[in-house]
Nucleic acid binder design. Structure first.
Lengths: 118, 118
DNA sequence: TATACATTTGATCAGTTATTCAATTATTAT
DNA sequence: ATAATAATTGAATAACTGATCAAATGTATA
């Protein structure tokens, strides 16, 4: 029987290290927000949308064509990106044009691209 | 009845734009790989592990204490990060010490931190 | 005002994921 | 050898997620 359920049983291997890391880590709440940001880019459909909007402002219909998923699916994902303020939109006649709203997104995608291309 | 199921019905709003974007977008396969990378950082537990390893090389037991989840849960997540070559490990006695294996991860976390702090 | 088009929305369903639990492996010390 | 500790693993389960379908909003044009 091991101490699987416990949080590392009663034993800590290196207390000083643990203290040091605990002192330096950002608040857990911030980590959660960051995870949420990464999650926004963690789906191929959403990431493809963002990659497209990196190039051009696009309406929902054209996004659907480019990303090759249904308009409904695109719209659902756009809502999520909207809620997270990753994209913004403007209405023009019947169309709704989406574009990127955040410069950090560009940098994240650039770094991730480097990663997969190396 | 709308054209929900179709891929943007038969109509494209701006064919030139669509062509331009399609020509410039990276291969879909690359987008998938990038999404997988983001997914690795899209969970609070995993992100917390990575943030900790950014500061110090740590054994599983101490990671468990710091991240405040069971050793088993930590180990499962470490396996995923190992598979993705985001972390590496070395054995020393009964302990297994994990550390970061990828410089891009540092940059991704730095950018995401800026994002949530702004 | 009808009609068509572009988009949004809510419900549902299948597939995925993170944790827990129990058992196992590996290493060290007695 | 035996016991104890550190870590890994596989199965089971509950929660989450992304796509589809059907229906409902706008918005513009005939």
């Amino acid at each position: 029987m091991s101490a699987d359920n416990a949080i590392c049983s009663a034993i800590i291997i290196d207390q000083q290290k643990v203290d040091r890391v605990n002192k330096t880590l950002p608040p857990a709440e911030e980590t959660k927000e960051m995870a949420t940001l990464f999650k926004a880019l963690a789906d191929p459909t959403r990431l493809r949308i963002v990659q497209s909007l990196l190039l051009e402002e696009l309406c929902v219909c054209d996004l659907s064509t480019i990303v090759k998923v249904s308009i409904s699916a695109i719209s659902h994902q756009l809502r999520l990106l909207r809620t997270m303020r990753i994209v913004k939109y403007r209405k023009q006649g019947k169309q709704v044009y989406y574009s990127l709203n955040d410069e950090h997104i560009t940098q994240l995608i650039r770094t991730a691209t480097e990663h997969v291309r190396e």
